[in-house]
């Protein structure tokens, strides 16, 4: 494995772990969404590393484009939910949003 592919896997995995840490550690809904975006950045790096390792840049490019589209739709819908949630609860702290409690 070349050093570039190794670097892509290394930093991709590290970025995913930092994203999961941000998801678990923060309470602000926008910061949680930023954590999801960080995870997606790490996943893109891992996908690119896998494509380079296999020697199929075209195939992995298609997968990355698909992934970016999914990421954009996820961000748009989630941020819409954040805005509506803020209008209802007047806070972005997920621990204070208790209206969904059973």
């Amino acid at each position: 494995m070349s050093s570039e592919v190794y670097g892509l896997f290394f930093f991709g995995l590290l970025t995913v772990m930092v994203g999961v840490y941000l998801l678990l550690g923060y309470r602000n809904l926008i910061r949680i969404m930023l954590g999801v975006e960080v995870i997606s950045k790490g996943t893109t790096m891992i996908l690119l590393g896998a494509g380079l390792y296999q020697g199929r840049p075209d195939f992995i490019q298609v997968l990355i484009v698909t992934f970016i589209i999914v990421e954009a739709i996820l961000a748009a819908v989630m941020l819409g939910i954040v805005i509506i949630s803020h209008k209802i609860h007047v806070t972005l702290d997920i621990r204070r949003q208790s209206k969904l409690k059973g």
């Binding site: 950045k41 690119l48 380079l52 970016i68 589209i69 990421e71």
Partner: peptide, 14 residues
């Protein structure tokens, strides 16, 4: 790394 279309998408969308 030659993924030009993905780079354009990343730059414009993300």
């Amino acid at each position: 790394h030659g993924a030009w279309v993905a780079a354009v998408f990343e730059l414009s969308v993300c």
